[in-house]
Amino acid sequence: MVAVLVRTALRGLQSSAVTSVAAAGTIAIALVLVGAFALIAGNMQGLLQRFGEELQVVAYLESDIDAAAAQQMVERVATVEGVQEVEWVSPERALERLRESLGGGGLLEGLEENPLPASLEITLAPSHRTPEGIAILVEAVDGLPGVDELAHGQDWVEGYSRVLVLVRSAAVGLGGVLALAALLIVANTIRLAVYAREDELAILSLVGASRTFVRVPFLLEGTLQGAVGGLVALGLLYAAFIMLVPEVQYGLELFLGSQQPRFFAVGEAAWLVAAGAGLGMCGSGAAMLGWRA
């Protein structure tokens, strides 16, 4: 029985090749758009995470703070919500770091006095590496006596995460709209296939075919068309990915830093194909709703 249903479905695909290709193509186009957005959002999110790992807030201290007072401040700041680690950097240590970074040249030799201030380097716990987390920290530390100036990437993080939220909701919203549009088009395409085979359906019903026997091949056809559409979308996205990435490599480096642009993992790719199959099945299901013997 199963073999007969599958055979009927394959035969159906063959006999309505044009509509089958149209349905698969529609699904492919919709999934290419959704997939492209997902790729962009995914890569931006990766960047934000990496950025967050390096994120430190630096509080520069006034010059009259000695080591003991600084130690007290360290303890105080460590109690602020979301703070993972606080490190005191003395003026001497700061100068040393500067020397190291300048490569030990004589540029700093003539200095009579260390011009660098002491500072606290504050690292946030991963869960607080957000605009809100930074805001809490800034508020708690900014007014402390002895703190001269705060350096933080709050604006940057805020702007970036706002873009990320935008891209992500655009991907979800657009994905939803596209999926719905694809569903309607696929349903209509498959309905055409149903009309085109109305004679066949009438004959099946005449010889006593059950509803299931008539419908299952169409559902299988739709699912198969959808899966093919998903595979095509995946192929197109991958081709675009490997062709476009080298072209824009320089710009990407500015944007992503050392992070390599990433394509879908196997599991994610499987989801894309499954989404296509699901779309195709729902589409043919919707098309069959309108039909009765």
Binding site: R11, S15, D199, I203, L206, G208, A209, R211
Partner: peptide, 24 residues
């Protein structure tokens, strides 16, 4: 019932003037 119709039709053979065969 609609769902009982197929069973009925399996016990009845029907032929028409225009044959109603599947051309493919």
């Amino acid at each position: 019932r609609e769902s009982a119709v197929p069973a009925l039709r399996r016990r009845i053979g029907v032929v028409f003037q225009d044959f109603k065969l599947l051309p493919r």
